[in-house]
Simulated assay, not measured.
Amino acid sequence: MTQIRQTPAALAGSAAVFPPEEFRARAAALQDRIRREGADALLLTGPENVFWTAGRQTAGYFAFQALLMPAEGEPVLLVRQLEETGARADAWFADIRTWQDGTDPAAALAELVRGQGVQRLAVERTGWFVSPDMMARIEAALSGVSLCDGSGWTESLRAVKSPRELAALRLAAGYAEAGMTAAIETCRAGASENDVAAAMMSAAISAGSEAMAMEPLVSSGPRSGIPHATWRRRRLEAGDGVFLELAASHDRYHAALMRSVWIGTPPETAQRMMDTSLRALDAALAAMRPGAPCSAPHEAAQREIDAAGFTAAFRKRAGYSMGAAFAPDWGEGAILSLFTGVDTPLAPGMVFHLPITLRDYGRFTVGVSETVILTETGADPLSSLPRQITLR
């Protein structure tokens, strides 16, 4: 019989993106919240929250995983058996349990929770990766355990980044700039959207980027006037606008960047829109000061857009938080938005992407963005790439 080697002890923590003290500080802050809320433990299922707390990252998060963070002591991670080796390489703690294909992970979770003596369990109700069916199975398996809503407890701690997180974001921004530079240089009549996307991704990855939480956005001509359009083999022609946006990644921390290109001379309306986008971005960045509400940058940008008569071309928030991300989204928009009515005060260490786009829907989009770190004195953009529309 062939002997299957167990995971080597030397592998433990070898792939962690940060040293254990970074994660222990996060765990301590989260446990303080758990105790203040009167829960015995918090159950995390979102891949970003599991990563932030445990260091665990994998492309296999489509299979159920859960992190049980007790009010006292070290966490316990439950993963699919195939994921155990990777989990041990990532995690800063030793207690990792598994469920086997063909078994019910809800039952394995219930066994873990009951084995830990948890009587009042806080659960993320807003997690993307637990289906209503799975949640119903978990609730049935945990019959007798009091469940409360722990949504947002971890996210509130993720909003302000540590120095190590900020360093990762700065590296990611450099990869994004490399990708954007290559994409702009590839834009020319006769090149295809695929050529542009390939150049963008190749340069970002060659610069150092890991897997991106969402594909880049590359579209041209009339398709550039469709939000979130991606490349589809179309060849660029004279007179086309080209819309480019990507986020690159370092240790799962993402920084995004958007720029616009025109093949030839843009029409007068497109140029006015672009000039308005630039003024709106400048206004938003100027409004980013510690203590100001998250609504302030949006309202500053909106005033510039309204004054130029392009209100209907901009019906969205001015920005969103950035940090650790997994597909399908490169941003942390569920944590913080720069938008009307968001009163959360800006604080040093917060990171935002501000994509200011104006659209003539179905005809073209122009826009510009920056990922910025908020410092004691204001917004620090992470890119040095020129912001004006590039003419090719």
Rank of each mutant, 00 (worst) to 15 (best):
I4G: 00
R5I: 04
R5K: 04
T7Y: 00
P8G: 14
A10L: 08
L11W: 13
A15Y: 09
P20N: 01
A25N: 09
R26K: 02
A29N: 10
D32N: 12
R35L: 08
A39I: 13
D40N: 11
L42Q: 11
L44H: 11
G46E: 13
P47I: 02
V50L: 07
W52G: 08
R56S: 11
F62H: 13
F64C: 02
M69S: 02
A71T: 11
A71E: 06
E74Q: 03
V76D: 03
L77H: 00
Q81E: 04
E83F: 04
E84P: 06
E84M: 10
T85L: 03
R88F: 00
D90C: 15
A91M: 11
F93N: 03
A94V: 11
R97A: 02
D104P: 06
P105G: 15
A106F: 07
A107R: 12
A107V: 11
A110K: 01
L112Q: 06
Q116P: 06
G117E: 01
Q119M: 07
V123C: 05
V123N: 02
F129Y: 13
S131A: 15
P132T: 12
D133Y: 08
M135Q: 14
M135S: 14
G144F: 09
S146G: 07
D149R: 00
S151G: 05
G152C: 09
L157D: 00
R158W: 03
V160A: 10
K161V: 00
S162V: 05
P163A: 00
R164W: 12
E165V: 01
R170K: 14
G174D: 14
A176D: 03
E177T: 01
C187S: 05
A189N: 02
A191P: 04
S192V: 08
M200K: 01
M201L: 12
A207E: 01
E210G: 15
E210V: 10
P216H: 02
L217T: 03
L217E: 04
V218D: 06
V218S: 04
G221P: 08
P227S: 06
P227C: 08
R232F: 03
R233M: 10
R235D: 08
L236M: 08
G241A: 15
E245D: 05
L257Y: 06
L257K: 01
I263V: 15
E268F: 10
E268C: 11
R272H: 13
M274L: 09
D282Q: 14
A284H: 01
A286T: 07
G291Q: 12
G291P: 02
A292E: 15
C294K: 05
A300F: 05
Q302F: 09
R303F: 01
E304T: 06
F314R: 09
R315Y: 13
K316W: 11
R317Y: 14
A318F: 14
F326E: 04
D329W: 03
W330G: 13
G341W: 07
P345K: 13
L346I: 14
V351E: 00
R363N: 09
F364R: 12
T365I: 05
G367A: 09
S369F: 02
V372N: 02
I373W: 07
L374C: 06
T377P: 03
G378R: 00
A379M: 04
L382C: 07
L382D: 10
S383V: 08
S384F: 08
S384K: 13
S384T: 11
Q388E: 10
Q388G: 12
L391F: 12
